[in-house]
């Protein structure tokens, strides 16, 4: 287990919203490390090095806490809704002999027959949950879309799994779909509708104002 990205982390002494905010101001990312039966450890690490490690697409990292190295699984990453910066990270301890369940991305390979005929390939499921040993975690799972025709689906059961990897996600969920494109008539109709509505709206509003202005003037006279 030496091919994994290394991250130098510190133990956070202060916890809570304000403390986490102060940590982020120092260009560090607050994190937490947990494992069943053990007490959780609050951590902090360098933002740049974590972002670099995240870009590799790996799910397992080697973290060095107080000069002790251990392997952890990236369980969850929280992002800022506007800036997309990493706000907080959850790590779970892993043991080499212990099987873990995690989410892995699914990617389609090849060009489907339906797409060649003008269909649209839509990915309905982005990730699936699998169970395997930490050393056997695939970066992503592939699903072959070459034989897909128009209006057909590929399901979780069609994903080819590497050896010793167990699928946790229900098998009859659709992953990929080739759909027929919608006709352009709709767009033209919509355009006509909006023009008509616009014209009607203008007329209505102008009508209303003239009537009401008349009423008002009447009232003033009275």
């Amino acid at each position: 287990m030496s091919k994994f990205e290394k991250l130098e982390v510190d133990i956070r002494k202060e916890q809570g919203t304000s403390a986490a905010r102060r940590t982020r101001l120092r260009d560090r990312v607050p994190a937490i490390l947990y494992h069943s039966g053990a007490e959780a450890t609050p951590l902090a690490m360098d933002k740049k090095s974590f972002n670099k490690a995240l870009k590799t697409g790996q799910m397992i990292f080697e973290i060095i806490v107080e000069k002790k190295s251990q392997f952890v699984l990236l369980k969850e990453v929280q992002y800022h809704p506007v800036t997309d910066e990493v706000m907080h990270v959850d790590f779970q301890k892993v043991r080499e002999d212990e099987k873990i369940s995690l989410e892995v991305a699914v990617r389609g390979t090849g060009e489907s027959q339906g797409v060649k005929l003008g269909g649209i390939l839509v990915q309905l499921l982005n990730a699936v949950t699998i169970k395997c040993k930490p050393s056997e975690i695939p970066e992503f799972l592939e699903i072959d879309v070459t034989d897909m025709e128009m209006n057909t689906n590929l399901f979780v059961k069609d994903i080819v799994l590497p050896e010793d990897v167990e699928m946790i996600t229900v098998e009859d969920i659709a992953v990929m779909s080739v759909q027929e494109p919608k006709e352009e008539k709709e767009e033209e109709e919509a355009l006509d509708d909006i023009d008509e509505e616009g014209a009607d709206g203008d007329e209505e509003s102008s009508g209303d104002t003239s009537e009401e202005s008349n009423n008002e003037s009447d009232g003033e006279k009275k």
Partner: peptide
Amino acid sequence: TAKPMETR
């Protein structure tokens, strides 16, 4: 909601 034009 909106009030009509030229309404008190």
